[in-house]
Amino acid sequence: MADQTPQPHQTGGGRRSFGQFAPKFAELTDDVLFEDVWNRPGLSARDRSLITVAALVTSGDATQLRFHLGRARENGVGKDELIEAVTHLAFYAGWPKAMTAMGVAKEVLDG
């Protein structure tokens, strides 16, 4: 059962980043991914952030990881938890992806 604690409302930056360049992409980012998927009941924003960080580490997406590590901190995931998640994923996602992710984490979390 999902935590009933009020969650921070998740918003995207699609229109701000791509509104003029790719309006449909911006719309889908803001209205579907963030407004709908990120704000669904069933998982807390904290849990969604941890899952998203894990997915980005395993895919090797350092650019999106940079953003989502910050979002995870905003959603209540601790620095030590994020470091532990990357360490744990090293054995499932592969050492090179974890090394890249840990470098990004060090930049974002200690920056």
Rank of each mutant, 00 (worst) to 15 (best):
A90P: 03
L28A: 08
T5P: 01
S49G: 09
E27C: 02
M99P: 01
A101V: 02
R16D: 12
N39F: 02
S59H: 02
V104R: 10
L69W: 00
R73A: 12
K97M: 00
D80Y: 14
P8L: 11
R46H: 13
P6D: 12
V37I: 13
A45M: 08
P8M: 08
G94A: 03
G12Y: 08
E81S: 14
A98L: 05
R15P: 06
A2T: 11
L82K: 13
G19M: 10
G12N: 02
M1Y: 13
M99R: 01
E84Y: 11
D61C: 09
A105L: 12
T87E: 07
A55M: 14
T11H: 12
T63K: 06
G94S: 00
Q64P: 04
R73I: 15
L89H: 05
A98F: 04
L89F: 01
H88L: 12
V108L: 04
T87N: 08
F34E: 07
G42T: 05
G60S: 02
E107N: 11
L109E: 11
A101I: 01
P41V: 03
G12E: 01
L56C: 04
E81L: 09
D80S: 15
A90S: 10
R66C: 05
R73V: 15
W95V: 08
M99A: 11
S44V: 10
R66P: 07
L43S: 07
I51Q: 03
N39C: 05
T29D: 05
E107W: 09
V108C: 04
G111M: 09
D30C: 06
G111L: 07
P96S: 00
G19R: 05
V77R: 04
T58M: 09
K97F: 01
G70S: 09
L82Y: 12
L89G: 04
E81V: 10
A22M: 13
